[in-house]
Structure formats: C-alpha cells, structure tokens
Amino acid sequence: MTNDHHIIEVENLVKKFGSFVANDHLNFYVKRGEIFGFLGANGAGKTTAIKILCGLWKPTSGRIQVAGFDVYKETEKIKRNIGYMSQKFSLYEDMTIAENFTFYGGIYGMRMPGIRKKMSFFLEKLGIVEYKDRVISDLPLGWKQKLAFSIAIMHDPAIVFLDEPTSGVDPLTRRQFWDMIYEAAHDGITVFLTTHYMDEAEYCERVSIMVDGRIEALGTPSEQKKQFGAESMEEVFIRLARKQ
C-alpha cells in the first residue's frame, strides 16, 4: 500500500520487551504535511512507538517506513530526514543559544552561513536576537522549549517528532508553541506529536488514541467525537479508557 502521500507507514508494528507487549499490532499512516497527534495515557506505549519511528529502537516485527526509508535497515537515512524533540529537555544547558544552533546544525551537515541564516530567522521570530550569547541554563523554561523546537526543525526535516513537547509550560507559551507548530506544518514539515493534553488533540488534523499498547481510535477529531457521541476529545479519551 505504498503511497506517495504517506510519509509514515506502519503495518502490524509489534514491540515486545520480554513477555511484555508495548506495541501490539499497530497500523496507521501519516500524510505528508499533516499534524498527527499520538495520544494515550502514560505507559500506553507512545514513547516506544516514537522511538521505533525515529530509528532508536528496532521493532520486534512489522513493516515500518519513515520518509520512504525502512526502519530496520535505513535508520541512518531516517535520522537525516527527521527532527526530534524529547520530553526530557535536550539543549546543552552549559552552552549558549548560538553554540547550540551551531552544534546541532553542524551535525546535520549544514554549513556555517546556512546555520547563521536559520538562527537569526528563528531568533527574530522569537524576539530574542540579543540573547544569542546567553547560556541556556539562564533562560526561562518557555524559551528553552521554543528554542528546542526551532533547533529540531532548523535543518528542514521532512518530519518532526515531538514527544510531549508542552508538558510543564504555561498556557500562553503553549499557545505560542502551537503557533510555531502550525507554521512548521504550513512550511511543509510533517508534525508527529505525543501529548496527554486532550485540548491539544483538538488542534491536530488526525489523532490516534493508544490504550495498553493498541490503537483504539484513529481519525480526525470530529470523526472521533461523532463516533463516540462525545462533546470533546477528553470525553472520547475517558470513554476509551473506561472500556478497559
């Protein structure tokens, strides 16, 4: 079912840790340029799936393609074409903003002029140009988050994976963060994110909900609300979780 419009294709993904099944026959695809939400409670298997898609872990079985590359054999090619931002904060706290940009740009093979251009682009957008020589540890959490996202997409990846990107930030920052996500999607970057804020699910184009290692629901937010006869995504989620 290889489809040119599908940037991620997952068929029967299974990941076991010993006898524990973290991902139980997952089937889904992500369309090029969409914002795909990957929802579920803690421990539902979201992080496992995202790590497999990023090429960090090998799946136990299943056919998985990311950006047209196979996750078994072509992880290095996958890595060139994706950006990633983890829930654990990933900038170097003891380096300045500029140094972090330079480092991450550099390891994606960008040249210095390109790095500088991208950096001033993002810093202008965030309105913090004058802080470029500040060490990260001195910055407020909201800035760090936005910077981490900027750095994750500075090399223009085909897909950016965001693992719980907004946990622990204030509502205003979350709002601004979502503006950045929309902008990235508008520029053609596919956004794959996990979250447990159900209101954020409403912002996604399509959403899958994982419960205990399986995908229990998949579709646009409005489709799902209709299917479950619910008012909000939060209600959809609670119904699914209760079913267990």
């Binding site: 090429g55 960090l56 890595k79 983890s86 654990k88 990933s90 991450y104 994606y108 994976f161």
Partner: peptide
C-alpha cells in the same frame, strides 16, 4: 544523565 544523549541518538551522528 541529562538526557541529551537521546537527542544525539536521533541525529545522523555516527
């Protein structure tokens, strides 16, 4: 310990 290794692992660094 700080988790930056995870970020490094998803980059094309060999």
């Amino acid at each position: 310990e700080t988790g930056t290794i995870e970020q490094i692992n998803v980059t094309p660094i060999r």
